[in-house]
Amino acid sequence: MSKNCAVLDSSIGKKVIMAITGALLFGFLLSHLAGNFLMFCGAEAYNNYSHALVSNPLIYVAEFFLAAVFLGHIINGIILTVRNKKARPVEYAMTQSLGEKSIASQTMIWSGLIVFYFLVIHLVTFKFGTDVSPASADGVRDIYSLVVARFSEKIYSIFYIMCMIMLGFHLSHAIQSLFRTLGLSQPKYLAIIKVLSILTGIGIAAGYCIFPIYFGFIK
C-alpha cells in the first residue's frame, strides 16, 4: 500500500491524478450541458429528466463518486500549487514570459477555486434550493421554473456567466495539459491539441452561457 501511495504522491503521480480526475469532470460537464439543453424542449421534458436522474437509486453512488473526483481534483491541485510555490522560496525581481505561459495557465488554481465556489453556490441554489413553485403530485420538482426564476435575476446571470468564462479559461489550458501529462501528445499533433483545447474551453463556456443569456436577457 505504501508503495502505491508513494506513486500517487510523486510529482508525476499527482499530475496523473489531476489529468484523470479532470478528464472525468470534463465528462460530467459534457453530460450536464447536454441535460441543460432539454430546457429548450420545455418545462416538462426538463423536469422529467431531472426527476429521472434523482429518483434513480444509483444516483447516490454516482454523486458520491462525483464528489470524490471533485475533491480529489481540488485537494490535489491545492497540494501541487503549494509544493510548486515552495520549490522557489525566493522570487525573482524580474521575470519575463518566454514559452506558452498564458493567463489561463498561470491562474489555474484561481480559476479552479472560483469554479469550486460557483459549484457550492450552484448546489445551494438549485439542488438544495427552495423551489419557486411546488412539486407535482408524484414528486417531480419544478426545477425548470427555479432555473428561469434565478436566471431572470440579472446579477445572478452575470455571476453565472463570469464563472462559466472562468471555467472555459480553466479548460483551455487543462485539456492540452491533460494530453501532455498522460504522455499522449505526439509532437505532430501538438498544435492541433492546443487549438482544440482552446476551442473546447470556449465551446463549453459558450454552451453553458446560452442559458443565462437566453433566460436572463433575451426572453
Partner: peptide, 12 residues
C-alpha cells in the same frame, strides 16, 4: 524539492 510541471513550456 523541485516543483511540478504545469505544461507551460517556459523550460523549452
Amino acid at each position: 524539492g523541485f516543483g511540478n510541471c504545469t505544461n507551460e513550456g517556459e523550460c523549452e
